[in-house]
Write a protein that binds this DNA or RNA. Structure first.
Lengths: 208, 208, 208, 208
DNA sequence: TATGAATGAGGATTCATTCAT
DNA sequence: AATGAATGAATCCTCATTCAT
């Protein structure tokens, strides 16, 4: 009865995180309704009842999962925005290339799809997503653009709409891969898209 | 009023369309799993069993519904592409404005969200969507762009990626409204977005 | 508009019999619960609703079907019993051989199985079967046996039990084929069974 | 009363047997289609869902139930065959009397009726019944008879057919009671039938 | 804390029966 | 008399949630 009973005394406070981590995969794969808590428990390596020690309901677990997914998203955005010292002309390609690389391979596209899918049933999630991710990200970009406009770097116009012009193609590209898989011969190469779109949006596609 | 309204006669051939029409609303609103056939039936004005006269299973009804939604989508695209005689410089603003107007109010954004949401559980739907809508739409635009490049109107570059640069912001805008509602103060005005993005993508946002 | 509209004016009073005939096959094949009226209608070449012009409910149709099956059974028994002039020693082999031949190929074994199967849910059928077929048949045989006992042809004993000793193996043989099919290598040859059992029951299997 | 009756504890391993036991009554009484799982659950003293912890589907439960019923049947047969040392002349009356007593009161006749009834819908059950009960039972008897023939106790003839001559009347008698109940004035007394048929089949009913 | 057997409300599906044509 | 589209009660089955251990 000495102190080593490591079998399950192991980090008792890590449990919620482990569960959420397991849940994320399952929710992303099957959606909210399609997810069976049995499977979440199995993947988390705990019994079904254990889930209820940490989360009141399935919805609760889903919210926690989505929130954590979004907050991770958020950190990626925050980090990306740390490189905002140069001119916009330099920033945009870097930003988009980073998005292509950092977001393209991880779980983020799946999470975006999931939140998109469930946003009707979970309006609070949509709000969190909006306030903590989308608005924040757009706000950052918008600020940069407005500053650049003040410096005469960027044409007049609504900075928020410019922000969308800049980021939307990358997001679409990510979703394209997520939804149709890379099997589609139409699936855009994300790095190429980042490069070409950067040029396109900065200089236009139209030949003067 | 002499139309001898049977008020409630047999109409074997109108029924499937009526049911699909009702189902579309419910599926868009609640998703596949969240949709109760009872509600579909109620909205279609028929009994639960009647659904099974025309559709084998709930999945079947969902597929039929999504397919029809996509084919409607398709028609909108085909029509939009009928105006392809002028130069790309003239076409792009028209195209995007049309998208803003025609797609913005109807059920299409909701359908896109729904198909996005269920594409994992219904890979065949994803394929249909890809082949019959996305690839087609991209193909059309890609063709126009390549032609314009041949005429020297548009810079060198992958036409498919240019196509994404052109349409993605509109689609994002539509989804933005669909997901966050227009309450969000960040929600872009679609007409303004169409106008400004047209200019941005054609001439660039960067000031020369 | 003259009298010949033979398409369906054809024997309007034959319909019930046609329906019952079709129903018999289906009920025998699938049992009461497993039978779908749609299939009965299809096999009878009428619409589902037509069944209800002649039979109030599915149960009603089943009863009529079973009754007719039993009455046909009955006739076979009556006929078989017409040959009761000779001695029992001559009658038994003839009777059993006839049973083997006449009952073995037709629908009767299936009907027996069906009535057996549903006798719990339809006690009235069991009664009809009992009164009009079983008791009658046993009664006939019992009478013959009692007469033969009076003449000193057959040993003392309960004639009814003797009757069972005589007929049971044939019935078992029929059911054996019905239930296990003739694929079973254990399935008795009915003619051989008739012949051997006749000898066995008349003279015993024991060697004196 | 110190048995610390948890009154209602977990008993994962007792449950299947309890359920099957309850199910047997209901299936025998109502047949497969007529059985409602609600009633099985109620009789087993569990909730509907509990059934599904142990059996995948209703069919599954039915198969398990029938199989167990048959295996019980089988044991009865095996035991009955343990008395095979004496001569056939001694064995047959004992065997039939045992059948009359042991099988007559229990659930076996009902089970036989049930399996008979459902054998069309569950051909696999028919096969199990055939292979594990019928063929086995016939095989045992057949072996005894062949041995007796070798010893000159029993006349020449197909032993399998003799076996049917011996057992069929008892089985018919059991089914008679099962189907028509003992109310029928025709219902044979099973002990009397066993006694008389033993004599009949051994010595013949015919007076030399 | 952790477990997983047990629960039962909820929803898809079937099919006998009806009735407008 | 005949049709078959429409109905909705009935029932199997799932799975989030509970609770005795």
């Amino acid at each position: 009865m000495n102190e080593t009973k490591p079998k399950w005394s192991r980090r008792k406070d890590a449990r919620p995180a482990e569960i959420v981590d397991a849940a994320m995969d399952v929710f992303v794969e099957h959606g909210f309704a399609g997810t069976k808590l049995t499977e979440v428990a199995k993947r988390a390596g705990v019994a079904k009842g254990t889930l209820y020690l940490y989360f009141e309901t399935k919805e609760d677990l889903f919210r926690a999962t989505a929130r954590q997914a979004l907050s991770a998203n958020l950190q990626a955005v925050e980090q990306a925005s740390a490189a905002f010292d140069g001119s916009v002309a330099e920033l945009v390609p870097v930003l988009l290339k980073r998005a292509a690389g950092r977001l393209g391979d991880g779980r983020i596209p799946g999470i975006v799809r999931m939140v998109l899918a469930e946003s009707r049933a979970f309006p609070d999630l949509a709000r969190i997503w909006h306030d903590e991710v989308v608005a924040r990200m757009l706000g950052l970009l918008t600020g940069l653009i407005a500053a650049a406009q003040a410096k005469g770097e960027i044409r007049a116009g609504d900075p928020k709409l410019y922000a969308m012009s800049i980021v939307a193609p990358m997001i679409m590209g990510l979703l394209f891969h997520e939804v149709f898989g890379s099997e589609s011969d139409q699936a855009p190469d994300l790095d190429a898209l980042a490069a070409q779109h950067s040029q396109a949006i900065l200089n236009g596609i139209f030949m003067d």
